[in-house]
Design a protein around this nucleic acid. Structure first.
Lengths: 210, 210
DNA sequence: CCCCGATGTATCGTCCCGATACATCGACCG
DNA sequence: CGGTCGATGTATCGGGACGATACATCGGGG
């Protein structure tokens, strides 16, 4: 169930262009938030699953060939494989992208993928996902807060610091989401499938560094 | 290898007192940072591994008993099981707690466990772990920063926001670590002194009092 | 009396990850 | 010309983690 995240991200990237596994992995790292890169041990099985489900195709050369029994330690000819999304794949992606319920935002990683493909998402769905995510994170924050209050006396200084830092991070995430929501409400941004940059919408971009 | 984190945390908790799996799980959630609770699907296999390795014992009632064939769909008498750390377990924990190299801080989760049991850690080791962790996170931050600089033009607003938020979090983590380090340097806090690993006989091991 | 929620133990299928192996290619160097 | 080095590229394996699920006991309240 939660395993959808990788498939979702792959479909989203292949929607933009066919790719090799190798490049897919690099792009995945950007999309998944910069930290947290995906391993090949996850990627290739995921691609295999997508292929089995008919959501992607490959240009893989015919490999079912007999290959006589006397074959030496020939590990198997390995060629480059380009993955391309199918019509069903696009359908599935559109379906995933339009989900606005808890399944879209309760899992942070899945939310991240949704965010990464927000330009394929309708404006009202975007807003609902952002607000849902904020509620989820607020609930986490409250749980953390009361847990911290309960255990304040029992735990040592370092554990307390760890929890305090965690609480602070979650708190910041809530504020970050609030900013996104405000910005989204002010300017709903380009509608779906608008990969175009600039032109419309107030460029309230704040390009600052710290 | 990285799988040590759960075993480490369990040993640390059992060091304080024998416990049921159920309570272990609750305490684990606090120790592991509040967020991120551990599932039973991870906990029980981990306990089984620790038991097999002789690092913990159980008071489990004899279960190898014949149990006459007329036994109905009795799935097996399940009783409460109290886990207790063994001498080897304490030894292993002391070993883990005194590691100060990259294996102690490169993985954030493992670092978290180290932090949670810092009062069992020598002051100089504490400092080295904290500084090592800061270096690691600084490197992550720099990687993220340059990645963000490289992709600033290519990616859409939302992905950029996600990365900016991630960078901000990592940056805050560095500052948090710096505060911990400063505080640690000012007052090394309670805890055993510098490693007397060379000396064969640590005079006595003052039982901890929380 | 019965059900409910907390306490408690345990496994299964599926996924993910780190490590590892294998393979091709362009570039730079002696 | 040969060597090898780093980037590109495909693939698997063992083991651990997780969500779901089942089973089980017990205190208390309707």
């Amino acid at each position: 169930m939660g395993g959808d995240v990788l498939e979702f991200a792959i479909l989203g990237l292949l929607q933009q262009a066919p790719m090799h596994g190798y490049e897919l992995r690099k792009r995945l790292a950007e999309v998944l938030g910069g930290l947290r890169s995906i391993s090949y041990g996850s990627l290739y099985p995921a691609l295999k699953r997508l292929h089995a489900a008919g959501l992607v195709t490959t240009d893989e050369p015919d490999r079912g060939a007999p290959l006589p029994a006397d074959a030496p330690p020939l590990t198997g000819r390995r060629g480059k494989v380009v993955y391309t999304i199918t019509a069903e794949g696009k359908e599935r992606f559109a379906e995933l992208v339009s989900q606005a319920g808890p399944e879209a935002y309760d899992d942070g990683r899945l939310f991240g993928v949704h965010l990464a493909f927000f330009r394929h998402t309708a404006a009202d769905v975007r807003l609902r996902i952002l607000e849902g995510r904020r509620r989820t994170v607020e609930r986490q924050r409250d749980g953390l807060r009361s847990s911290l209050a309960r255990t304040r006396e029992r735990l040592d200084r370092y554990t307390l610091e760890l929890q305090r830092h965690g609480l602070d991070s979650v708190d910041r995430e809530v504020r970050w989401l609030s900013e996104l929501i405000d910005s989204e409400r002010r300017s709903p941004g380009p509608g779906q499938d608008a990969a175009d940059r600039g032109g419309s919408g107030p460029p309230d971009h704040a390009p600052e560094q710290d």
